[in-house]
Design a protein around this nucleic acid. Structure first.
Lengths: 226, 226
DNA sequence: TCCATGGTTCGATGGTAGTCGAAGCATTCT
DNA sequence: AGAATGCTTCGACTACCATCGAACCATGGA
């Protein structure tokens, strides 16, 4: 009967799966483009655009136009707190989270996260990069480490050309199946590109799964998990 | 694409206006019956029952069967925190809350909250009861004060018969238009009954508004707001 | 034992909101 | 300028779910 703030309105905004996916994708505080969010949410671009308009209308998101890109981000910590609180309840509620992650084993092992690799392999690779000081992480920020440029040069990735774009070369992306970070950004894209170019793995159509071939996996491990 | 806890599922539970009303009605930590919640939400009993089943399924509510009543309550502080967090965002988002409360002036002044009086008059009455030690509040608990039984006896309410039922005689109910407590429980019901029996006020059909007659208002003020 | 009251289930209805294809703007690169 | 990319708008379709009346169960009281 009390009708305080219109709680139902904004709860219903979060209540749609597509929008919820978008919001959680932005929970790291980063900004993503509409197309990236469309992929994250698993919907078409028009649909995503509609959802984004609704989220903007509810003031849950802010947008920054940069050239022909529109970068969407959470509008503030209050929104993040809310998502966090909802997640807490959901964790206690939902179907027993005995298996935290996707039902699909291969998805958990290796999948593509828009344009870079995610899953166990990606997290292991990220850890090794940090251990070897190929990349260094300063709190939230991630940069190429002292031996980084050299390392990537040896495997045919020219890091000097990756810094040009407005897009950050290195970005941390929280892996939902492992709950740890993996590498995104243009460098992450370059690595995924190489994996596919070398035919170490292929992507079954209509899925995010990345299927390594047996020799491909060996080569990948030798190169990135040495 | 991270698919952590099923946040959309429980957000959509809160996203329905009827359910949101129910949840906010329970935000004081109390327990209400299905019919009370139906009135709070402004829906029919079958509809309310369906919503309650869904909220139970999502583990947002607990239920305690007492006789033929079923008392629903929030399942824990985590749920309350979530509602609180959502309210915070909603306050920043929604249509300017210049007028915190109902658009209807008469509603804000006096209305019925299921079976007791709410609104400005009810809050003023509650304050006076506390000031005069007619009732005393111990934190969350409310009891009849030292002069309480005598006071109510003089106006024709026998408090000794009100304690029999399982229902608490005194209960605090948070008034949404003033954001302060008013009196619920069987004593609150008795007072409302008296007001209507004395014809100090009447209830237009199909509304929660309580319309005092001019002499009725005088009598009410003399008796309860002296 | 029978009635009254509080709740839930069932079935049918209607409205609303999510979805995508196609077309339309805007910006940037060649 | 022309082409390509990123994004939004429009229109039509669909599916889901909130809603309520009526019937059905359960408990408590006479």
């Amino acid at each position: 009967m009390k009708e305080g703030p219109d709680i139902a309105r904004i709860a219903s905004l979060v209540g749609d799966p597509a929008r919820a996916n978008m919001l959680t994708a932005l929970m790291d505080g980063g900004a993503l483009t509409a197309s990236e969010l469309a992929l994250e949410a698993g919907v078409s671009l028009p649909t995503a655009s509609s959802h984004l308009a609704k989220l903007m209308d509810g003031k849950l998101l802010t947008v920054a136009s940069q050239g022909r890109h529109r970068y969407y981000a959470l509008s503030g910590t209050e929104v993040a707190n809310m998502i966090e609180a909802i997640s807490g309840v959901a964790a206690h509620s939902g179907p027993k989270r005995a298996r935290p992650g996707p039902r699909d084993k291969s998805m958990r092992e290796a999948r593509v996260c828009y344009d870079h690799l995610a899953g166990d392999h990606a997290v292991a690779m990220f850890d090794r990069f940090v251990a070897e000081e190929i990349i260094v992480r300063d709190d939230e920020e991630i940069r190429l480490g002292p031996v980084g440029a050299g390392f990537f040069a040896t495997i045919g990735i020219d890091t000097s050309t990756l810094g040009n774009s407005r897009r950050p070369m290195c970005r941390a992306c929280l892996d939902w199946s492992v709950r740890r970070s993996h590498l995104a950004g243009s460098l992450g894209t370059a690595i995924l590109d190489k994996i596919l170019a070398e035919k170490w793995a292929r992507r079954p159509a209509g899925s995010r799964v990345v299927e390594f071939t047996p020799p491909g996996r060996k080569a990948f491990e030798k190169l990135f998990l040495a």
